[in-house]
Computed example of a mutant assay.
Amino acid sequence: MAHSQKGGYDYEFVETPPQYLECSICLLTLRDPHVSSCCGNHFCQPCISKVQEANKPCPLCNESEFTTLLHKGVLRTINCLTVYCKWKRLGCDWKGELRNLGEHLMPRDGGTSGCGLVMVDCSYKCGVMVERRELAQHERDECAKRPVEAQMSSLTNKLEKRLTIVEKKLESTLREQKDMKDKLSSLEVQNESLAEENKALKTKLEAIKHIHSHSIDTPPFYYTLYNFNYHKAANLVIFSPPFYSHPGGYKLRLQLYPNGTKHAKNKSVSLFVAIMLGEYDSDLSWPFNGRVSVEIFNTTHDVWDMTTDFNLGLTASSRCVIRPIDCVANDGTGTITWLSHDDISNHYVIPGYDFVRLRVSEVKLFKN
């Protein structure tokens, strides 16, 4: 909940503050509490300063001449009140003393600690603002000004360790072949098997490195769509960044029509999934046969819902699931009447911020 900068606090408190901590002018919890010399009542310093600057009498006892003084005891009491984070409705579970809220929202050290839902600038000065909890991923995988050094995931480390073990086994096997000629046949089979495993692991490792270096995500894939109402008013089609079904898999993207298409024009939001020309298409099975599950964040109930399964396979149009032949994506498949304009405005657009959040929760592949 946002607070007024000219009056008291209107944060969501864990327990309702006692009435004596309420400003008699703005009726909110006291901010910078001052006590009057005339009737001894408490006011927010911004509220009572306006009265004094206008040369008006005390709003409670009507005394024309009075002074005010910061009440440090009341200030300490207020600073010890327990509040929720202002982004509680979006999922932040932080709560603590009021004195610590500012540090939670915007740490003094400028680091990545604090509320993950606060919008922050990229440290590489690329001009993009992202949620603090997504800053590390943005700076590692998406920022146009990030360092050249590749950022590897835990899966890459595991594959490298496994590769080292296999290579040592291969060397050991070669030594044993020289000492055990009577077992040459079985050792040759083992050597070939280990060599194939070594080759496969190297291929997987290179695929993972390539995916990371090209900033391509895999499910769960999160996409925040900013300026939704602008795109809707301009009747623009919105394309999400591409993502892979899995490491070394199919390259996909979401296509969203904020103003609807075909018979849903000006009534509903239409959503489609399309297959793009990918790096690994030659190693994959065609036509594509699988299900893409998409969800949207419900701001009313603080949950991901409206799970929609997009089935692409033998029952879909052949232009949707065949191997792409150029840089233009295949025809998309989806639902024309995905969400009505009333539903998305009332439950899914972040109030006051004009953005919606989508998530591809799963891509499940079926056997052809």
Rank of each mutant, 00 (worst) to 15 (best):
I78H: 01
I78K: 04
N79S: 08
C80Y: 15
L81S: 01
V83D: 01
Y84C: 04
C85Y: 02
R89D: 15
L90M: 14
L90F: 14
G91S: 06
D93F: 10
D93Q: 12
G96L: 07
E97L: 04
E97W: 03
R99T: 08
N100L: 12
L101Y: 00
L101M: 07
G102E: 14
H104S: 01
H104T: 03
H104E: 09
H104R: 02
M106H: 06
D109C: 03
D109T: 02
D109G: 02
G110C: 05
T112M: 13
S113A: 10
L117I: 07
L117R: 00
V118Y: 01
D121A: 08
C122Q: 02
C122W: 11
S123G: 04
Y124F: 13
C126E: 05
G127R: 04
V128C: 07
M129V: 04
R132Q: 08
R132G: 02
R132D: 10
R132C: 07
A136L: 13
Q137H: 06
H138W: 11
E139C: 02
D141Y: 13
E142R: 10
E142D: 14
E142Q: 10
A144Q: 08
R146Y: 08
R146N: 06
P147C: 04
E149V: 11
E149Q: 11
E149D: 12
M152T: 12
M152E: 09
S153Y: 13
N157V: 12
E160A: 02
E160C: 05
K161W: 12
K161P: 04
L163D: 00
L163P: 00
L163I: 07
T164W: 06
I165G: 00
I165V: 13
V166R: 01
K168V: 10
K168R: 10
K169S: 08
L170H: 03
L170K: 08
T173Q: 03
T173S: 03
R175C: 13
R175L: 15
E176F: 09
E176N: 03
K178E: 14
M180F: 12
D182M: 13
S185H: 02
L187V: 09
V189N: 06
V189I: 15
Q190G: 06
N191E: 12
N191R: 10
E192W: 06
L194T: 05
A195G: 07
A195E: 12
A195R: 13
E197T: 14
E197Q: 13
K199V: 14
A200S: 12
A200E: 15
L201A: 09
T203M: 08
T203Q: 05
L205S: 02
L205G: 01
E206P: 00
E206F: 03
E206D: 05
E206K: 04
A207S: 05
I208H: 09
I208S: 06
K209T: 06
K209I: 14
K209N: 07
I211G: 01
H212W: 09
H212T: 09
S213D: 14
S213M: 13
S215P: 00
S215F: 03
S215Y: 01
I216Y: 03
I216S: 02
I216M: 09
I216W: 02
D217K: 11
P220F: 02
P220N: 05
F221G: 00
Y222N: 01
